[in-house]
Each structure stands twice: as structure tokens, then as C-alpha cells.
Design a binder for these strands. Structure first.
Lengths: 352, 352
DNA sequence: CGGACCTGTCGATTCGTTTCGACTATTTCA
DNA sequence: TGAAATAGTCGAAACGAATCGACAGGTCCG
């Protein structure tokens, strides 16, 4: 590998001149700059990332912190990852993946302390997430996708669950549904995204005079089956289900079919924050509510880079509002007379 | 951030002693080592990654090169990524994501020349992939997932398509299917994975006395519809379809339903290399053939690290054999009398 | 009992950049 | 017309860790 010294020798200048020509920090005459550029081309010179990072304390690398669970990744995680990666690259940064369980706080401290990354993006933040403290203590700039219980003064970007809940419930209400189910992933932690969404759904249901029955399900095919059984057992009148866990969908749909309930004729199902590609795979294709994960990933990168550039900027907290994407899993409540009337929903969007 | 000098001062030794204590390169007395370790703990010392990389020329970072296409990622790409990332981390390496189109060869050369990464994993390699040349010229160790047209002397790991083809075709043949369709993603390049798989399917079909009609489809819902129409038009007798593109599945299944062909009663469908989570989402759940993407990701990491450690090792080329995962999208050919007989297939596995 | 050989430690140098201070030639303007 | 500013360049000193040579003291063996 060619070094700056090689370039300098070939161009007949000093090393510092090469450096200034490269960075533009000080004026360099046109003729000298051209000689240097030619020399760099001839030698195939590329600045060494380590020497640069060592001196300048900036690596132009950011890390994406994923919860470690190869076992059952949400497929929409891919959209966050790709969205963030592409966008970071466009902004001149590299994206490093760091898979670490919530328990591996020590490892994370080590990682953060190495100075390898300029900043960190934290995915799937839990209310009591210990990673946040570790990062704060290590004084590494970071931004969250989702947020913990005490997000004051921290940068984050999250889904506006109140908005999603309103869109979902109003849509179902317009279709005549009065008894709704809500299937959430079982979680050992209190107050996470599922709980927040549940609360908002409950309120939205109250506003339109509907009731909502929440069910916590294991994240598996079997869990979906169990959830369906639980809902049917709790109230056979439940005619629409809001789902917040990708993994329960297959079991839920199969259990419905096995119990003679067709979707959407006899039962409506709508998913929160499910990736479009995933939603297309079910039969019928799944109606969803939620913002684009790709966009959230991009916005998270922007948020983090803003902090890296202007250090003193006040923390910013962004809520992304989702859209209603109607595909085919929701229909009118068969047990009610349904008067469509004029729709009041504005963000609705019909897909092919 | 504390440096080695800080640790040395606190422990009352020289910097080099601290370094030797850390690396174990030279013997250090127990008492000194303990003093040093205590000092490191007190100061929360973590070695600086840049200084270390600059001196030692090793970063313990590997890159995963993805084709840039946020637009339509294969969901199983997530499994490669997570498999590789987890495994790299267990082996003490970091995983960096590099999203770059096949066209961005210059950027790639820059990236490789920085010395930032010790090695590179290349995903979705195409027959004429220019990235391979760039990496070879930059003398960066790399391993491929899939392979190009001239893989001699290069490390790679790939799906054994001959094996997958045999499993799929034999299974369909046992169910009495004689006319098979093969839906492949449309591609501007010749001789890629799809073409290889197609050839193997054709041969396997020949061996069991079946015929195979190949169709190239655009990777979209609409493409799937078109593919179904093309197959039905080419030969209405086609009773089973092998699919090699995740994105055409929804369109294909919907078109089948619209034409009154139920799966699996009237039409069998089987997918090659589709992730389990994805396969569970369809109705009926999709039968698949293929190795685990997670395992391939892990194996690719191992392959690359082997090259990083023992530089002189001869190139190794691994083919992963897939399994037949029967879920529910294949059934007996309704137009033939079907005599199940004793199965000869060995790798078959029935899932719940 | 004196070289050969360990054990344990230190100082100095090196990796490839960035950046500061210094210096020469020019230019600018009061 | 001379002081001040500016353009253009250089040398040297960091940045933080790895590593080589040196060396003091101790152990071993013939």
C-alpha cells in the first residue's frame, strides 16, 4: 500500500503539502495540486483509515446495535438495517453491525470504549434498556429507534403509536366492528412498545365506542394459534384483530381457518408495523398500519449524524406517523348492518 | 479516554510493560501483572482500536458486501447477515456492512485500499461480478457466498443446486407430477444461480421422465401473475411449479387462486432457498428445499477467518446440501393415479 | 565459578496521518 | 513606501499501541 510519503516523494513535495492538498485545509497552488493528484493516481493511493482515525479521532463509522436473536428476527429488521446502511453510505459513513444481547453490557462498554465508532444507533430499545446507560457513560453519541422509559434529553425516532392506533381502530370501526382483539408479543418487560400501543388502541376504541380485548402471545406459530383460541374463548363476538407481532400471524390465520372463520369475510385482521413484502405473502394479503421502516432507518442515521456534526444541538425526538395500507384482510363486520357513508379517514391509501 | 501511558503511570511501570502484560507476548511477573490489571480496571481502560490497527495491520473487522437494492431485498438476506454477524462476533471480529451496487467498483477499490477491513465476504455473486476482480487486485482476502464464472482458486460457499433440484423433482415425481414449471427471476446476466438451478432441474426431470418448462419472471407481484399465465398458456397440464424467487410467490399464488386452481389440491408449488419464516406466512405454508441461510452465513465467516489465519491454505469450495422441508404446498397430481409406494427420498423431513 | 541461558523490565522507534508553527514571496492598502 | 495581510510550502510533533534491542539479576550446568 502506498503511503502519503510515497506520494510526496513522487510529486516532489513534503508530506504535509500532500495532506493539505487532500483535505483542502490550506491553500495549495494549482500546479502543485495537479502533480500531487497525478501521483496519487499513479500509485493508487488511498489514505490509511487507522492513521487517519488515530490522529483525527473520527472514524466515519457508526454502529447499529441489534438485539441478539438469530433465532427469531423480525423480517422488517432487514428494512431498518438496509435503510440505515444505504443512507449512512450516501452520507460518507460506514455501518457496523453489533449484535449483542441486552445482557452483554460489559462487551458493549468495551466496544464503545475502543473509539472505533463515532456514534451508535440502538434498535429495539426496551423500557429499562441497560445499553442506554452504558452508552451514555461511555460518552458515545447515540440515537435510538424506539425509546426507553426515560428518554428525556436523548435523541430518538419512533413510531407514533397513537396515530397508528387511531387509523387502525377508526378503519375497523367504519367497517362496523365493535369488539376488537389485540394480539401482542409476550414480553417479560413492562411498558414496552406493545404496552404503549395497547393503551393507545384502548383509548381509540373507547372514542369510537368499541371494546378491545388484549392477548399476549408467544412469538411462534403455536403462539398465534393460542392467541386465536384465547380471543375466541374470551368473546366469540370479536370480529376484528389488531396484531403487533409478525411471528404470530401464520398461527393466527391458520387457527381462524380451522375454526371456519374466513378472512376477511368473517374476521378482519390488521397488522401494525409489518413490512410490505411480508404483508404481500399472506392470503389474503395483510392490511397494515405503520411508517416505512426504511425511512425510519434513514431518519435515524440523519439524527445521529446531526449530533456528530453539531455537538451542541438540543436532543430531538421524532415520531413517525404511519399510513393505513389496505390490502385485503379487513372487511365489514358480518353481524352488523354496515353503512359505509362518507369516510372521514384521510391518510387511507388503497393499494393495487 | 485512558491510554496505556495512564495505566503505566498508575501502575508504576513503563508503557511497554503494560503492552506485554496485555498481550502476553513476553513474561511479566505475577505481582506486576496484577498491579497493571488493577490500574486498567480503575481507569476503565480499553485499547484504542486505531492505534492498535495502525501498528499491527489487523483490525479484526470483516466486511459483508451486499448488492445495493433497498427496493427489493430478499428477506432471507437477513438470515445471511445475522448468521454472519453473530458468528463473526463469537470469533472476535466485527462485521461491517457495505452496500454497493455492482457498478460502484471504484468505491469498492477505495474501501478495500483503506486497510480498514481484514477481509471481505461477498454476497450474491454474479457470473461476471466485477467486485471479485477489484478485491483480488486490492489483495484483500475474501470469500464468496455463491460464486462467479471463474471461481478456481477462490474460496466460496454455495448451495448445491444439483442436490436441491434432485430433492424437489423427486418429491414432485413421487406425487405423480409429470409436467413441471420453473419460475426464475428475470436476469440480465447469463449463467447465474437461476440458470444453474434450471439446468439441474431439467436434468433431474429428465431422469424421472418428467418435462420442465422454464419461465423468467419480473421480481414482483405482477411478475408472479404473468409467470402463472405463461405457464398455464404453455401447457395447461403443468401440475407443479418450482419457484426460485421470493417476490413472485404472492402473484403466482393469487393468479392460481383466481384461475380456480387450489394449492395443493390442483397445483403444487415448491420454493428453492426460501427462509423458513417466510415460508410459514403463505397459505398453505410453503414447502421448500434448501440449506439454512444462517448456517451458510456462519460457514462463510469460518472460511474467511481460516484464510486470515493460515494465509497459505489452499482455496476451499464448499457446497451446502439443502433439505426438503414439507409444509403444505405440494400434493398428489390430481390427473394421475398416484401410487405412493415406499419413498426412496432420505433427506425428507416433515415439519409440524 | 564463569559463560550460557532464562526472567522481567525499560527506552526508543515505528505505523501513516493531521496539524501547528515557522518561513518565504507576493500582494494589498493606507 | 513600508507595515500588514495572504498564498504557498516545509519540518516536526503529536495520536496510542506494538515491538525490538538492551540490560540487570538470577539459575543452571559442566
Amino acid at each position: 500500500m502506498a503511503t502519503m510519503a510515497d506520494v510526496a516523494r513522487l510529486a516532489g513535495v513534503s508530506v504535509s503539502t500532500v495532506s493539505y492538498a487532500l483535505s483542502g485545509t490550506r491553500p495549495i497552488s494549482l500546479s502543485t495540486r495537479e502533480r500531487i493528484e497525478q501521483a496519487m493516481l499513479d500509485l493508487g493511493y488511498t489514505p490509511n483509515a487507522f492513521a487517519r482515525g488515530l490522529k483525527s479521532k473520527r472514524s466515519r463509522i457508526i454502529a447499529l446495535l441489534l438485539p441478539a436473536q438469530t433465532a427469531s428476527p423480525r423480517l422488517s429488521a432487514l428494512e431498518y438495517i438496509l435503510g440505515a446502511s444505504d443512507h449512512a453510505q450516501e452520507r460518507g459513513y460506514h455501518l457496523m453491525l453489533w449484535t449483542a444481547g441486552v445482557e452483554a453490557a460489559d462487551d458493549l462498554a468495551q466496544f464503545a470504549g475502543q473509539g472505533l465508532v463515532d456514534g451508535v444507533l440502538v434498535l429495539d430499545v426496551r423500557p429499562d434498556d441497560p445499553r442506554i446507560q452504558v452508552l451514555a457513560r461511555a460518552e458515545v453519541p447515540f440515537a435510538m429507534i424506539g425509546h426507553n422509559a426515560e428518554p428525556d434529553g436523548l435523541d430518538y425516532i419512533a413510531t407514533d403509536f397513537a396515530h397508528s392506533a387511531r387509523l387502525a381502530v377508526e378503519h375497523l370501526s367504519e367497517l362496523g366492528h365493535r369488539k376488537l382483539g389485540f394480539v401482542d408479543a409476550m414480553s417479560e418487560v413492562e411498558g414496552g412498545d406493545g404496552a404503549r400501543l395497547g393503551k393507545e388502541l384502548e383509548e381509540a376504541a373507547g372514542r369510537v365506542g368499541a371494546t378491545m380485548i388484549p392477548v399476549a402471545a408467544e412469538e411462534s406459530v403455536e403462539g398465534g394459534r393460542t392467541a386465536f383460541a384465547a380471543l375466541a374463548g374470551a368473546d366469540p363476538q370479536v370480529s376484528a384483530i389488531v396484531v403487533f407481532s409478525e411471528h404470530v400471524v401464520p398461527g393466527l390465520m391458520r387457527a381462524a381457518a380451522e375454526n371456519g372463520r374466513r378472512i376477511p369475510e368473517d374476521l378482519s385482521v390488521i397488522c401494525i408495523d409489518m413490512a410490505p413484502h411480508v404483508a404481500e405473502l399472506t392470503t389474503p394479503p395483510m392490511s397494515t398500519v405503520g411508517p416505512s421502516a426504511v425511512q425510519i432507518g434513514q431518519a435515524a442515521v440523519d439524527l445521529l449524524l446531526r449530533r456528530l456534526d453539531g455537538d451542541a444541538a438540543p436532543a430531538r425526538q421524532l415520531l413517525f406517523q404511519g399510513e393505513l395500507n389496505l390490502r385485503g384482510s379487513c372487511g365489514p363486520n358480518p353481524t352488523t348492518d354496515h353503512h359505509p357513508g362518507s369516510s372521514t379517514s384521510q391518510q387511507r391509501r388503497y393499494l393495487q
